[in-house]
């Protein structure tokens, strides 16, 4: 399978030598921002590997959401890979289902299924489908892939949790894209979530301003998405979606609100791979072997840097993301996108 990918170095995912130290399902570990940034890099690396092997899929879409997904799976979500059906767990829904590789990478590294399964992505007989499939993949709450449906699915989960007396316990996090915000259904869900008085729903918008046919501004300008959610009765904030401290803080803050919460993350499509960052023309295209090699070199160098600086003793369980803000940001190119 990998024989004809000579230019790409090591395509197999390897177990993380610094996996998260979880304290158990109910009480997640609180890794530092620097640790989370490192895991985001690790997940990005596996996305490149998966797509280089699958020769199909949405790489830049996955990279765009990597920081959000790492923050959620490694810190914010209360979940237990050993008990994926634990009723009290927080729910994660990848509304922008085409970014499945980034979720698969997180699920595999956290032990929902073997790492080797990542290499079967999009192949006949493999469990990892092109878009998340709840009946095939452990850790996937609902199947997605059709833009615009995800937030309604999240809302349904919220209502069920409320009926089960779990609304105070379990938070539902949906990750949406520009395209999701163009579908009318998203705004039907937004109306309904406010109407039903939902308090445990967080919509995280991966607002990278690029879609299939061009920039969002050219194709269908979604305008001020934060203001739209606010007008629909939501608590709505806008943050820099690759600023890990800000992402963690916004996600954790969203739990405590008495309204549904929207976090509009200004992101860069293809984040982490310079050749792709913010550039049109990569959507839905697998990386060429050359691009994959280049991407892996860049990401692996970053991982090494991040691992190195963590070795210096930055691994503080319980560190507050606000403190870590000063110590954590190693990424020279983490300026907010315009």
């Amino acid at each position: 399978m990998t024989a004809n990918l000579a230019p790409v170095s090591h395509l197999r995912p390897v177990p993380d030598p610094q996996p998260p130290s979880r304290k158990g399902a109910g009480e997640p570990a609180r890794p530092s921002v620097a640790e989370l940034e490192r895991w985001a890099t690790l997940l990005r690396i596996d996305c490149v590997r998966m797509l280089a092997v699958a020769k199909s899929g949405h790489l830049d879409s996955s990279l765009s959401a990597a920081d959000i997904v790492a923050a959620l799976y490694y810190r914010v979500l209360r979940h237990d890979p050993a008990a994926p059906e634990w009723p009290d767990r927080d729910r994660f829904v990848l509304c922008k289902g085409h970014a499945a590789p980034i979720q698969y990478a997180a699920l595999a590294h956290l032990g929902y299924f073997p790492l080797e399964d990542l290499m079967g992505l999009r192949q006949i007989g493999a469990q990892l489908q092109g878009h998340p499939d709840m009946n095939r993949t452990s850790g996937v709450e609902v199947s997605t892939g059709s833009l615009g449906q995800g937030l309604s699915m999240c809302l349904g989960i919220c209502l069920a949790l409320r009926l089960d007396g779990l609304a105070e316990t379990a938070q539902v996090f949906g990750v949406l894209s520009d395209g999701d915000c163009q579908e009318g259904q998203t705004w039907e869900a937004a109306t309904a979530a406010a109407h039903f008085g939902i308090t445990n729903l967080t919509a995280v918008v991966d607002y990278n301003h690029l879609q299939t046919d061009g920039t969002t501004e050219e194709v269908m300008d979604t305008g001020d998405v934060r203001a739209k959610f606010e007008a629909f009765g939501w608590d709505a904030v806008e943050i820099h979606g690759h600023d890990m401290a800000a992402v963690v803080e916004a996600l954790e803050r969203s739990r405590a609100l008495d309204r549904p919460a929207a976090i509009v993350c200004q992101t860069t499509k293809g984040k982490g791979v310079s050749a792709m960052e913010g550039r049109f023309g990569f959507h839905g295209k697998p990386p060429s072997p050359e691009l994959a090699a280049e991407a892996l070199a860049e990401l692996e160098a970053r991982l090494e840097r991040q691992t190195g600086s963590l070795g210096a003793g930055a691994r503080e369980a319980g560190a507050d993301p606000a403190d870590a803000l000063e110590t954590g940001a190693d990424d020279p190119d983490s300026d907010p996108p315009e």
Partner: peptide
Amino acid sequence: LGEDGASH
């Protein structure tokens, strides 16, 4: 349509 799978 192929790789995108059942959803598409």
